[in-house]
Design a protein around this nucleic acid. Sequence first.
DNA 1: CACAACAAAATTGTAGACAAAATTGGTGAC
DNA 2: GTCACCAATTTTGTCTACAATTTTGTTGTG
Lengths: 228, 228
Amino acid sequence: MNDMPSDKTLPQDIIYARIWSAIAERKLRPGTRLKEEQLAELFSVSRARVRQALAALERDGLVTIFRNRGAFVAEPSIEEARDVFFARRMIEARLVERLSAAPSQQAIDRLRQHLNAEKAAHLAQDRKAIIHLSGEFHLLIAELAGSRYLWQVLRDLISRTSLITAVYQSHSDTSCGPDEHAQIVEAIARGDAARANHLMDHHLEHIETALDLTDENERSTDLKDILT
Amino acid sequence: MNDMPSDKTLPQDIIYARIWSAIAERKLRPGTRLKEEQLAELFSVSRARVRQALAALERDGLVTIFRNRGAFVAEPSIEEARDVFFARRMIEARLVERLSAAPSQQAIDRLRQHLNAEKAAHLAQDRKAIIHLSGEFHLLIAELAGSRYLWQVLRDLISRTSLITAVYQSHSDTSCGPDEHAQIVEAIARGDAARANHLMDHHLEHIETALDLTDENERSTDLKDILT
DNA sequence: CACAACAAAATTGTAGACAAAATTGGTGAC
DNA sequence: GTCACCAATTTTGTCTACAATTTTGTTGTG
């Protein structure tokens, strides 16, 4: 797993990033088959690189690899989606709590700086930047809370959340404005741990309830289930 | 990443398990270089398999791979060790809390069954089994708490804990008897979420404080630091 | 005598070729 | 006409050889 500061863009990381973006932007739909040779040709690299990228995507939950059958864009079940949000609420609520307990001025500055970037993206209606920055906000909290390990876990969870959002996004535009982020930052700045905890929990609940996690929305990949 | 039921022992998984055991049993000390060809010869497999096993070990935090320089048994810093325990206390305390809220009879039976196995191992003084079962107990709680994702995170954390224990184990035999586990199970069975939470938190705290996580115990791998 | 630059050895990273497995299409029997 | 079985194709998994990089040892110069 990559460390926090990962600037060197290895060739397989580029492939990873490209596929990641394609999935997050719903260009690659869940269930799509990802043939190794096809990707190798597309990116002008050998299959070995593609295999590494696919393996990395698998451990981040974005693709599923079936033995001897190939890689497919993952199709998170409703159960898995709820599980991801359960984990996020548990972890992030405690992280803001910890951060609120002793917030350094530097931390608050970085958070406020980030909020400005988010506001700018919203004004520009840059959907791609909005999604990216929204994830970054949550990662920033993990970083400032001082847990390198949970930062990595959260990075993984946010990847999965992106896929879940792509699959179960309801028609109502889940704008998820920066207001809730701003409130959380305020609570942290005041050192109000209980309120920060509460706000983060509700923030994630809002994101979850904005999705169509109803049973009828579950698209079973098993044709037997569909055609009976 | 492997799913919960993973019975098929792939050849590279065997290599993974062998190295894992060797590290946990302190036969392979932190900092030891793991040359690919050497391992390939040792296990009578090709280097490709070894590379896969090493990559898996790296993402579980047991080895560190430096680009173009090879793989080494990881040397968790004190900071990383404390971070792992922070994450475990956060996650596991909440998991027992959740499990205590609605413990099924089946869940309680499995926990009690596990406690018996632990007692048997302690009576037989089977150190290897004790370590293994101790980890299994914590994983069992995650499984019964119903979070597949956090089960995977915890599996990773327990791997790292094994390495940390191997490195920072104090001379006093950290027996970590099954008594504390039994108390936790009792609290769960009674549905006493608050107490289960409290007991788990203290249990992990005991394990952590039983280690030599003092600064002077930090063995710096950087020769520059050592010889000045 | 010490330091720096260079060359050689060792080790990892990558690519291409081969083997194993699974799916698909076709053929034959009932 | 339908089902089962077998062969052919496609796709993945694995192995071996080559290239790139790092480390180590040597030599020459200040």
